[in-house]
Design a protein around this nucleic acid. Structure first.
Length: 213
DNA sequence: ATCCCGAGGG
DNA sequence: CCCTCTGGAT
């Protein structure tokens, strides 16, 4: 699809943003970073259930590092991959203290050097906490970008670059979040529900999908 | 049963 | 490229 059409597509989705708060509920770079690291392969609800107690016990990287993996684990046993995440968060916080003066680094290379932080997580932090024009691409956004023609690409990185180029600047903040939700609940891997899609008029994929009935 | 709002490792 | 780690949602 054309760049103009892509802009209309994204504006239509943004207007019907199903989750206006999202990651923005984590108001500091540190809490955001930890919450996003915990989010892998789990739901927001599961993460949001355990983070209040975790951050009450360890408000900053110094306290979190002091807890260690053994101390962190009890707070996050209800979410997926908790063993690895407990180790990652503990190691990550030690590095924040030792190498970055207890601050979350603002550059991609330093972020991605932290345990448990890959390109997707780094992009979320750069975008939400530091206002960078990044797009965090997960499996949903990868599929959506290709299926709709919004940002086709053979690799997640190609889709990411296409989306950053085509997303209207004023929508870029936290755009990954409503795109992911749209991919999860409407533009699903199986049985996409195009009849519920607010951007359907800007996408030709719906021609291949029958309405229910 | 199957897939994930991933990352790290072989 | 493939696998594994985990609880939860469907």
């Amino acid at each position: 699809m054309s760049a103009a059409q892509a802009g209309d597509f994204l504006r239509a989705l943004a207007m019907h943003n199903p989750a206006p708060e999202t990651e923005l509920r984590y108001t500091t770079p540190f809490t955001l970073l930890v919450a996003v690291v915990l989010s892998a392969q789990t739901t927001d609800a599961a993460v949001n259930r355990c983070t209040p107690a975790l951050f009450a016990a360890a408000p900053g990287p110094v306290e979190m590092a002091a807890l260690g993996a053994e101390g962190i684990a009890p707070f996050i046993r209800t979410i997926g991959l908790w063993q690895g995440k407990a180790k990652n968060v503990a190691a990550l916080c030690s590095l924040l203290v030792e190498r970055h003066g207890g601050e979350v680094p603002t550059d991609r290379a330093a972020l991605e050097a932290l345990p448990g932080v890959g390109r997707k997580t780094a992009n979320v932090v750069l975008n939400v906490a530091f206002g960078e024009s990044t797009m965090a691409v997960d499996t949903h956004i990868f599929r959506l970008g290709n299926r709709t023609g919004l940002a086709p690409g053979r690799t997640p990185r190609e889709v990411e670059d296409g989306l950053v180029r085509r997303c209207p600047a004023e929508l870029l903040r936290d755009a990954h979040h409503w795109l992911i939700l749209h991919g999860r609940y409407v533009c699903k891997a199986r049985r996409p529900e195009c009849w519920r899609c607010p951007a359907a008029t800007h996408c030709n994929y719906g021609d291949k999908v029958a309405a229910p009935g």
